[in-house]
Design a protein around this nucleic acid. Sequence first.
DNA 1: TCCATGGTGTGACTATCATCGAACCATGGA
DNA 2: TCCATGGTTCGATGATAGTCACACCATGGA
Lengths: 235, 235
Amino acid sequence: MDVAAQETPDAAAPRIAAAIGEPARARMLYCLLDGRARTSTELAAIAGVTPPTASAHLQRLTNHQLVTVTAQGRHRYYRLRDRRVAALLEALSVVAGRPRDAFVPRTPIRLRAARTCYDHLAGTLGVSLHDRLMALGWLSSSSKKGPAYDVTAAGIAGFAALGIDVAATRALRRRFAFGCVDWSERRPHLGGALGAALLEAAEQKKWVVRDLDSRAVELTPRGRRDLLARFGLET
Amino acid sequence: MDVAAQETPDAAAPRIAAAIGEPARARMLYCLLDGRARTSTELAAIAGVTPPTASAHLQRLTNHQLVTVTAQGRHRYYRLRDRRVAALLEALSVVAGRPRDAFVPRTPIRLRAARTCYDHLAGTLGVSLHDRLMALGWLSSSSKKGPAYDVTAAGIAGFAALGIDVAATRALRRRFAFGCVDWSERRPHLGGALGAALLEAAEQKKWVVRDLDSRAVELTPRGRRDLLARFGLET
DNA sequence: TCCATGGTGTGACTATCATCGAACCATGGA
DNA sequence: TCCATGGTTCGATGATAGTCACACCATGGA
């Protein structure tokens, strides 16, 4: 019974919002925001509910096109449906994280320090890396204050040295590179296909390790050393 | 009792989503998406509930920082808190309006034809105007496929003739101009400060008239004539 | 074939909340 | 001062939906 498929967009919007608007489901979704898949029981633990409850929640999220499920043996892997759902969750975080009087961030330091934003680096690490890339002249902000970026000749060479083919990345059918603002820093980090490629490269080089249960990303000793050497980045 | 102010962003997100995720409240919010303010009773009628119910809803929306209220005499005017809330609602529409098999738009034609998207023109009118501005060479897409736009010399002159000071608009502290994709057309129209200035100019020239109860925008006979004359735009 | 494990359906309980009528407060005009 | 109007608060009611224990189905390995 795919409820969502029979509705007008107007009627679907509040139902989708309601689907997100339940703490256990929200925990699941924000965990999946790193773009990876989780099994039903993993998500049950993360949400803090029993498997039957989690199953009901996941069914609802699937009906409303927020997540997709793929069966693999005995396991069923759930993941966010697409980047637009991720964008919705990020937009929600932006509104939820609005500065308020005497606001003190209560987010775990680990998560503020380095984390993924769907499929690219965010947090303080993501922001400093972004600033460094701008300072090095690898990236250029094409429009006056617009979020879209372009890569300079120096940047093409630099990214190539990291094993990133800029031309191939640009050819992907998604936004190439832009300043992605997230809730904890309120400053841009590198988003888009290029940001994703950068995270992938960093993971491959074992500069960073992703946490399984959250969006946290840990900087390895090797990563700390290489980032300093290559970018002059103090972490 | 401002519940939202005592919460971490993480706990606030699902509550905000839940605040949107109730049909009556969603109707109110999407109505306010044109950026204008409405009184409590107006919103009650639009949502299809009695004044006491609407009052409770509006209180919740206010607590969760989605709308603000300003008292004027006996009336209390509610409006969306800021552009980020509008962005959230649009992101929600995008997910809600995802193409589905045999999808038939059930939106009133009037709303599809011309409407506002927070504070700029959308709908088929917004889209054709956008395409025309590109064809005339007033706008240029700065990045490869990014949404940010810039204005050409021809555009600066053209907008000036409409009474729009491009330099002043660019100086505003918001995104200058970009392709804003909305749910009904799935094609970009002109968003940002420049889009807002264009709508304002069109309103001032009596080319369009806004509807009070919805996001609909009506093209006046004069507007039809002038748009044809100035842009060669058949409506 | 049997068993262990991952995952889902059922039914009962409970809490939340949307709703409205009626009463109440506040503003502006007569 | 009184009244009309806009708007909110209160209290009661009913529906929705989140929760878990238990039972059930499916897959994979022994």
